[in-house]
Amino acid sequence: MDELTIVVPVKAAVPNITAVRLDPNTHNLVREGVPLMINPYDRNAVELALRIKDRFGGKVITISMAPPNGKDFLESTIGMGVDEGILITDRVFAGADTLATSHAIAKSIAKLYPNFSLIIMGEETTDSTTAHMPAQVASWLEIPFVYYATDAEPNIKDGTVKITRYLEDEGLLEEFIYNMPIIMSVYRNSNPPRDISLNRKIMAKVNGLVKVLTNKELGLNPDCVGLKGSPTIVAKIEDAKPLPRKKQIFQGDPKEGAKWLLENLVKEGVIR
């Protein structure tokens, strides 16, 4: 391996989930007027990729399957320091579930960057929170997958990478050494993203650093992508009614207040 090639798949997501409502009649998501943006956790993945590039060199590519306006999000990642962006957009990709999406992403990476060293992804998306993608991409490419990664130190000479991951519930930091290529998803509270550079964004736009590819160029099996390649069926969606707040207010000594709060939380069964 001469040089690191790091690919970061990113998603054009719905910005915050409360902006989306369910149509009471059709049970579909009401997306009108909701702008799309890069999935926030994907920025942490881009950041980790850039930190690896800063220390070990190489090239960082972001790739997204999105409608044509997905170009904007990829230009933003170039603004952060990414070298090039790939937007795959085609009507045949529409209506994809996570399986069909992971197929398109995995096969595109294999075709465009057959010598990739690392694939780095966000922990999950904020709008669908399945966290399916990294595992599925790993599966299509038949490579190992590490989740909750916080850091990675590749060794270009021997082709290995030392990955640190953080297990939140256990409070454990773990280190693994693997052979590359490997895929990892990034712990969402690590690697806070850097600012977007104006000059880099200008360069991305003026020099056309985001390539737009359709299935004509990619040649993926139409049966494995889009609606056709999606076995998921949404049987029913229910709008969870928020519980009314009790709005109890304690006034007085903070120590008494803490005691009062504790007693009440125990009484309500919130803590035991």
């Binding site: 910005p15 915050n16 409360t18 902006a19 909701v34 702008p35 943006m37 926030p40 806070p192």
Partner: peptide, 9 residues
């Protein structure tokens, strides 16, 4: 909460 946000830490 009805607004679209992308809050910076």
């Amino acid at each position: 909460n009805s607004n679209a946000w992308d809050v910076d830490e």
